[in-house]
């Protein structure tokens, strides 16, 4: 079940990534339309992070390629922003929250110019959007996990991009941060941004996203959530993992009834 769209903003062709002679991502081929909030869902080790790293050119590709706005990444880098996993950096680094957010402005100012007042203002506005303005000058080691994640998001916002690729922004954060991030993602979508998010939790996934990429090393499905977030496809994605399967059944039931009510006012 792969729904292809006309004029996609993200186009992935036959993408294969092999680590240590073992495929991490196998022949993924799909398209994503503009202005969607896309969830990348699948079991552990399904190649979810690998997929967005491959799109960002951060891992060597064994075959295939990705296009953004119909062009190779190098031509449109300014319009694409990436949020790495929070654990991928050393948070004991001697930098403040604002220093990290300012990195999102490096490309705009030029790599060898001093940071301008305008950059500082934009960075501060982005901290405000994630409700972290009070922590601008705090050293990043003194922030909680959720606050660190919000700093990463603010950095991505500071890039003022049109496509955002986020690697597990909901991993290991508190409920306040989760709802703050979700509000922000909805707001970004309403501004026409396209956002792809690697996500672990199936229960919240249906609520957060309107488009899904179901992945289990190979691409199982890609399309609007009503068509793709179905029992059959989720079972296929998660294979024989019983505890997950039971949960999927419940989810489908919960999610199906309200949808039917909405759709049948005339009958």
């Amino acid at each position: 079940m792969i729904v292809n769209v006309p004029n996609p903003v993200i186009e992935v062709h036959d993408l294969t990534v092999i680590y240590n002679r073992k495929p991490a991502l196998w022949d993924a081929d799909f398209t994503i339309p503009k202005g969607k909030l896309v969830g990348i869902v699948g079991p552990n080790g399904a190649g979810k992070s690998t997929l967005i790293k491959a799109i960002m050119g951060l891992v060597p590709l064994s075959s295939g390629h990705a296009e953004l706005f119909g062009k190779p990444l190098d031509e449109v880098r300014q319009k694409v922003s990436y949020v790495p996993q929070r654990e991928s950096v050393d948070w004991d680094f001697p930098a403040s929250a604002l220093d990290v957010v300012l990195m999102g402005r490096y490309r705009h100012t030029g790599l060898f110019r001093r940071i301008s007042k305008k950059d500082r203002n934009i960075a501060f506005e982005c901290l405000k959007k994630v409700r972290m303005e009070a922590f601008a000058n705090r050293q990043i080691a003194q922030l909680s996990g959720g606050q660190q994640q919000r700093v990463f998001l603010a950095r991505a916002l500071a890039q003022q991009a049109d496509i955002y690729l986020m690697d597990e922004p909901f991993a290991g954060i508190d409920a306040t941060t989760e709802s703050a991030i979700v509000d922000l993602l909805f707001e970004m979508r309403s501004e026409g941004k396209t956002i792809m998010v690697v996500h672990h939790d199936l229960e919240s996934a249906y609520e957060y996203f309107d488009w899904f990429v179901l992945l289990n090393t190979r691409l199982v499905a890609c399309g609007p959530k009503e068509e793709v977030f179905t029992q059959d496809l989720l079972v296929e994605t998660y294979g024989g993992k019983m505890n997950v399967l039971a949960k999927i059944g419940e989810l489908i039931r919960e999610n199906t009834f309200p949808v039917r009510e909405d759709n049948s006012p005339l009958r």
């Binding site: 990436y82 790495p84 940071i115």
Partner: peptide
């Protein structure tokens, strides 16, 4: 002095640096 920003970003977060083309 000249390369403060690229040295800073490639030291702190090499993946992000690579993602923005450094």
């Amino acid at each position: 002095w000249w390369a403060y920003k690229p040295l800073f970003i490639t030291t702190f977060d090499p993946a992000y640096a690579a993602a923005i083309g450094i």
